[in-house]
């Protein structure tokens, strides 16, 4: 076991899979010599060579597009989109193309591609570097979307994503890259996709979150505990498909839910999850499900982002509202 940050755990997962499977290719803008702008691919080109780990020209649509072509030749591409705000450039190649390869070919072809990309607010980036755009991909049948909240999960989930035979968008919250370390096994292990994790057990209310909001939810749960409110915190880990089994089990126990996401409120993951809970468990609910989310504006880059981003106080406020309903 070693103490690792999330970015180190991600590099480690890439190393494990580059070693395990000669078909794994890691590429993108600045990922080779430079080791990636966040150093996620640090040292990998030296270790595995330029045929396996390489720089690409600067064009997101082609980075996603060549991944499909490489997949037809038996490769397992792991491209990086330098920031997920740049995904708009690659939307057709992802949602219009790789998501549909299996379907379009009548299940005779598949796209075992894992697109890694940093996202998330709170690190004072310029515009289109921080947006939470997981909902864009989650709406596309054929795609999977994975968002780890900690180093252990990041490594295990990335290994599972790379081994998955369907395309995965793997989103790495920038604020979590180096914010803390934890024990991460140095060997090969995996965390199953599509399975949520109960990060904290509780009896009065269920907080559902993913990415950085898992930590805001845990902090809120600690504060609430002082007031005598016992909050259960679920880390979704995979936001498409959603693990409703774990969610419903918790809802049946706590009877109250606050859904937490960093993304804007309109459309998005929270709406989908909340509508499913009410369809499946309305009789278990003692109060309406409330949502903590960012306001429906363009991401408030830099100047106002601390206020714009949801935080643990917002969560506490909504928990109090569902408890006192």
């Amino acid at each position: 076991m070693a103490q690792m940050t999330m970015i180190q755990a991600i590099t480690d997962a890439l190393r494990v899979e580059l070693k395990n499977d000669e078909n794994v290719l890691v590429f993108g803008e600045d990922v080779g010599q430079n080791g990636g702008v966040f150093r996620a691919t640090e040292g990998l080109q030296d270790e595995f060579g330029e045929e396996r780990v390489f720089d690409t020209p600067l064009a997101e649509s082609a980075i996603a597009g060549i991944s499909i072509g490489l997949a037809t030749q038996g490769y397992r591409p792991v491209p990086e989109l330098q920031f997920f705000g740049f995904v708009y450039e690659a939307m057709d190649a992802i949602n219009g193309q790789m998501a549909r390869l299996r379907y379009r070919s009548g299940n005779t072809m598949n796209a075992p591609i894992t697109i890694r990309s940093p996202f998330g607010g709170g690190v004072h980036t310029p515009e289109l570097h921080a947006d939470s755009l997981e909902g864009l991909i989650a709406q596309q049948p054929g795609m999977k979307v994975v968002i780890p909240s900690n180093p252990y999960d990041a490594k295990g989930l990335l290994i599972s994503s790379i081994r998955d035979n369907d395309p995965v968008v793997f989103l790495e919250h920038m604020k979590l890259y180096r914010s803390f370390r934890e024990e991460v096994p140095e060997e090969d292990y995996s965390v199953e996709l599509g399975k949520a994790n109960v990060k904290r057990e509780g009896t009065d209310v269920t907080l559902i979150a993913y990415g950085a909001m898992v930590h805001s939810s845990l902090k809120a749960a600690e504060e609430l505990d002082k007031e005598g409110i016992s909050a259960e915190v679920i880390d979704l880990r995979t936001v498409m498909p959603v693990d409703f089994e774990t969610i419903l089990k918790s809802v049946e126990k706590t009877n109250r839910v606050v859904m937490v996401q960093e993304a804007q409120r309109q459309a998005g993951m929270a709406s989908y999850i909340v509508s499913n809970i009410q369809e499946r468990a309305i009789l278990h609910l003692e109060a309406p499900i409330l949502t903590v989310a960012a306001p429906d504006t363009v991401y408030a880059f830099t100047q106002a982002e601390e206020v714009w981003l949801p935080n643990y106080n917002d969560i506490i406020e909504k928990v109090n509202a569902v408890i006192n309903f």
């Binding site: 649509s61 060549i66 499909i68 072509g69 490489l70 030749q73 038996g74």
Partner: peptide, 20 residues
């Protein structure tokens, strides 16, 4: 169906052939 989408994919197929 999408005009031009196959052009980036073709580059990828060709890259894969070269690697192989």
């Amino acid at each position: 169906i999408i005009i031009g989408a196959q052009y980036t994919q073709a580059a990828g197929v060709a890259m894969g052939m070269k690697k192989r």
